[in-house]
Amino acid sequence: MKISILVSDLSSAGAGRWGGGSVRSFLLAQALQRLKYQVEILGFVFGQEAAVIPQSEIMVSQFTGYNYPKFLISASQLLKKLDGDIIYAMRPKPTTFGLALLKKLKTNQPIILDIDDWELSWYGGEKWQYNFSFKQLYRDIIKPDGALRQPDHPFFLKKTEGMTQKANAITIHTKFLQDRFGGIYLPNGKDTELFNPHLYDPEESRVYYGLSGYRILMFPGAPRPYKGVEDVLTALELINEPDLKLVIVGGSPYDDYDAQLSKKWGNWIIKLPKYPSTEMPKIVAAAHIVVVPQRNTPAALAQFPLKLTDGMAMAKPILATAVGDIPEILGGNGYLVDPESPEQIAEKIKLIFQNLEAANERAVKARERCTEKYSINSMSNILESVITKL
């Protein structure tokens, strides 16, 4: 059986970042492959840098995306190639779920809808409304840069979200999303065979990446305001010990937020460039602590932080905020603070380094929990049940 995974953004700023390997759509593909299904990923690149994605393991087809009306040509090209026995649409967006529903009208292919983010949360959530007037509507449709020419404009997102029950099955990865959309809980899994701390020497990794001599707090992801990196940097200022550094891996592909952080807190930050996902275990091995300082916002509540299982799988002490599903995922095997509490973060950092042996023992238990509940194999087990019911 063939399963076609449909993605809205395969650019280097979207699902194609890190070479695709540790992004939700590629994790699902890996889990499905372990069930011996044939898997392909199809998606658009809208005027951004196309991602370099290895083709050896998962077949990936990229289509150049455009605004309306030219998007109809892009959509037609993708639909012609969308031939899986099951369509797995990533997020309720017109460019994914909307196209899957069009295909289903013709072929009756079953659709699984995966919701790993609340798209409308970026626009104010349920409060968002289109400011209708004939003049505004004319500008948004007729002008070359009109807002409603964007295929995934929030006006269309809101309409598509209202059709989620037309999917044959829904999978989600946080309780927040489950409360909003229903569906089957399918947490992000980690390849715990690749992310294996026994394969890497932490001090060798620190030397290799130029981090030797520092006590490393690591944030292996893209900083954004709701992810709370500022709270960690404020905590480092409070502690004021120069060998403590926050290592940010990859940086933000979305805006200049990295530059803003560096301008204010540059003396506490070490930046590492973006690496292939297969190199991430070696990078995380260099950390003393992995930080996941999410703030209590709808955007944060909707997400399953992949950096959390990066640290768990590599048996690193986790310092995180008690936001959303994080306490449940850690299961008592990490260090929790309130969101937006730099003072609490500072106290926990000092506590961990004062009792590093005990922190590392707790981290070993976190890896055991990750292997049991948050691995690619555990994803496969859940997906097998979902597909069987179809």
Rank of each mutant, 00 (worst) to 15 (best):
V7Q: 08
L10Y: 00
A13C: 11
G14S: 14
G16T: 12
R17S: 11
L28N: 14
Q33P: 06
K36H: 15
Y37N: 12
Q38D: 15
V45L: 04
F46H: 15
A50F: 01
I53P: 13
P54F: 00
Q55W: 04
I58Q: 12
V60F: 10
V60H: 06
G65R: 11
Y68K: 01
L72I: 13
K80W: 10
K80H: 09
K81C: 01
L82V: 02
I86Q: 10
A89F: 02
P94R: 07
G98K: 00
G98L: 04
L99E: 02
L101K: 12
K103A: 08
N108M: 06
P110K: 14
L113H: 07
D114I: 01
L120W: 08
Q129K: 13
F132W: 10
F132L: 12
S133N: 10
K135V: 04
I141A: 02
I141E: 01
P144S: 05
G146R: 02
P154L: 02
P154C: 10
L157D: 01
E161Y: 10
M163L: 15
A167C: 12
I170L: 04
L177D: 00
L177S: 07
G182W: 03
I184W: 03
Y185E: 08
L186V: 14
P187N: 05
P187W: 04
N188D: 13
K190H: 11
D191V: 09
D191T: 05
F195E: 04
P197I: 08
G210Q: 12
S212K: 15
S212D: 13
M218P: 15
M218G: 14
P220S: 06
G221W: 07
P225R: 14
Y226R: 03
Y226C: 01
G228V: 03
V229T: 12
E230A: 03
V232M: 03
L233C: 02
L233N: 02
L238F: 06
I239V: 15
L244H: 10
L244K: 08
L244S: 05
V247H: 10
I248L: 15
G250A: 03
S252I: 05
D255F: 03
Y257I: 03
Y257K: 11
S262A: 10
K263V: 00
K264V: 08
K264W: 08
W265Q: 01
G266C: 12
P276G: 07
K282L: 04
A285C: 13
A286M: 02
A286D: 09
A287T: 04
I289W: 00
T297V: 04
P298D: 12
A299N: 08
A300I: 07
A300M: 07
A300T: 04
M312N: 05
M312R: 05
A313I: 01
A313V: 01
A315L: 03
P317F: 05
P317T: 11
A322F: 04
V323H: 09
E328V: 12
Y335R: 14
Y335N: 13
E347L: 15
E347G: 08
L351P: 00
I352F: 08
L356P: 02
E357I: 12
A359W: 06
E361M: 11
V364M: 09
R367C: 02
R367W: 00
E368I: 06
T371W: 00
K373F: 15
I376A: 12
M379T: 09
S380Q: 09
L383I: 11
E384C: 06
S385V: 10
V386E: 00
